[in-house]
Nucleic acid binder design. Structure first.
Lengths: 204, 204
DNA sequence: TTATCTTCTTAACATAGGTCAATTTCTGGC
DNA sequence: GCCAGAAATTGACCTATGTTAAGAAGATAA
């Protein structure tokens, strides 16, 4: 991991983080001065591990640039579970919540810059700034809704429907995620994804 | 729905709710006096609908007695998504969070008594009692972890593994949930569940 | 208790997606 | 630009689960 960043670049990234947070947590300049102490800008190269399975997740991050893949390993095989794209949160959330070892690996799919809040700092915030509790709650709520939709889709849609829906609603997946990871995210094998894509292509 | 309850019974149920909440939100007697204003004890008969699809979920409830089933309807078919047993939360959570129409139906599997907090009251609490924010956050966090585990299980386990795991960790499902609902929860058809059960039975 | 309706089980057959193996296309380092 | 390794595709075959239909077992109401 290359952490070398000019002071200006660092400040610029922090400012972006503030903007992205704004919807959850609008802060006065004064409040921000406190808040930003808790942020750490982290930079990764493509392929780097942001979190290893078995490690505890200490950071709730915002992806300033790049994107990440979250996966578990089952019987020696990687199962892609989630991706975080630019301007989204990135966190092994259940590990973060419980401060227990993560089942997930998180890897940089591209070069990445993350703005990360440390768990301990967030707990301090919760204690001293009641308003920040709302931020914590809202963040999990968004996560929850996302999980629920995925679960419904896994239950009721065929692989082809899952693929089509994803392409329609979030074409960024096709643009930024290699097909083998996408297949795994759709809960099928790369060969099956190929077949589905071929069929769709031939049908039009 | 039969709401007739003696005053003593009502008070007793409220007290149970307080006890069950304690882990999330320990309250002094004084605080409880405020808090309990927001609770409503609701009673249902087996088969009653606690929430209909399309309605907005206004209550976050605790199941005092009984159990409930949450399902969606897809192409005319019911898909069981979740159950709430005695002493657990019961809520169409994403509808509650967003105060938008619920995709889920919630039905009483047995006669039920619920202690329910109204959405508006909870928002007031969040405003006036910073501590209650933590309650809200913790509740969603628990929900989140549950959803994540289910999603992982749907992705990596075979139907038989899902059945075995459920029996081992939560035998209450087999005790309280009719097989056709259980099948749907495991994301298979009743016929497949029958086959799996038969096979497991013959193997021992 | 009997009659009726629902749930559960079984069996024969169909299909989506998995597995394995070979081939083609893409990609990154020299 | 060339080459090696990785990613993606294709085809033949396999398996778990779905589908349909029938009957058995349980539940409910008169």
């Amino acid at each position: 991991m290359d952490r070398t960043l000019s002071e200006e670049a660092y400040a610029k990234h922090l400012n972006e983080a503030r903007k992205l947070l704004y919807d959850y947590l609008p802060l006065t300049d004064e409040q921000w001065e406190v808040f930003k102490q808790g942020f750490k800008i982290r930079k990764y190269h493509k392929g780097d591990f942001i979190l290893n399975g078995g490690e505890t997740e200490h950071f709730l991050s915002i992806v300033i640039t790049g994107c990440t893949r979250h996966y578990i390993i089952v019987k020696g095989e990687e199962k892609s579970f989630d991706f975080s794209f630019q301007h989204e949160f990135n966190c092994s959330y259940s590990s973060f919540i419980q401060q227990e070892p993560s089942r997930f690996f998180i890897q940089a799919l591209e070069d990445c810059v993350l703005a990360s809040i440390h768990y301990d700092f967030l707990q301090q915030l919760y204690l001293h700034y009641p308003g920040s509790n709302k931020f914590g709650r809202t963040a999990v709520e968004q996560y929850y809704i996302w999980r629920e939709q995925r679960e419904i889709s896994l239950m009721i849609d065929s692989a082809q429907e899952r693929y089509l829906r994803l392409m329609e609603k979030y074409p960024i997946y096709l643009e930024q995620v290699p097909l083998k990871y996408l297949a795994s995210y759709l809960n099928i094998k790369p060969e099956s994804l190929s077949r589905i894509r071929k069929k769709l292509f031939e049908e039009r």
